[in-house]
Write a protein that binds this DNA or RNA. Structure first.
Length: 137
DNA sequence: GCCAACGTTGGC
DNA sequence: GCCAACGTTGGC
């Protein structure tokens, strides 16, 4: 079991869009960055991830689960780009903000704080449990 | 809305 | 293979 973080612009594809797909889930497509793609290639079915809203919100707002491993991205013919499918599991009780992550002694080492442009990131088990606690889960 | 940081692209 | 130019992203 590994943990991840998926970053999205809420105006383009937000948590509410993700939840609306239900258990059918949705492709996490459109990623055009090798590091993010490589992270997706490492995912297994059942892995859990945080759903993060960038831009004006800057907070972790939900939990998602990987339901299909890496496969070609249907939004491009370019064979370089793969993606996984994810489904919404549940929303957080209390969003965990970027400010909280940055000011926390352990969470401040997350890529989210250091490299906010990486759209798919790994999360350690320790970080996962800390954030779940802060999120009221 | 601006600006800095970063990643990708393309020319050499 | 290197490096400059460019486009995109995201925080503020």
């Amino acid at each position: 079991m590994q943990y991840w973080l998926f970053k999205s612009e809420p105006d383009t594809w937000g948590w509410h869009d993700q939840m609306a797909r239900g258990d059918a889930g949705e492709e996490w497509n459109g990623v055009r960055n090798y590091q993010a793609r490589n992270n997706m290639r490492l995912m297994n079915i059942g892995d859990l991830g945080f759903f993060y809203h960038s831009q004006s919100e800057r907070a972790i707002v939900g939990i998602v689960q990987v339901i299909a491993t890496s496969h070609p991205d249907s939004t491009t013919d370019d064979p370089r780009w793969d993606c996984v499918d994810i489904k919404a599991v549940k929303p957080v009780v209390t969003p965990v903000t970027l400010d909280q992550v940055k000011s926390h002694p352990i969470l401040c080492d997350m890529p989210l704080a250091k490299n906010p442009r990486l759209s798919v990131q790994p999360v350690s088990a320790e970080q996962w449990h800390i954030i779940c606690g802060m999120a009221g889960l």
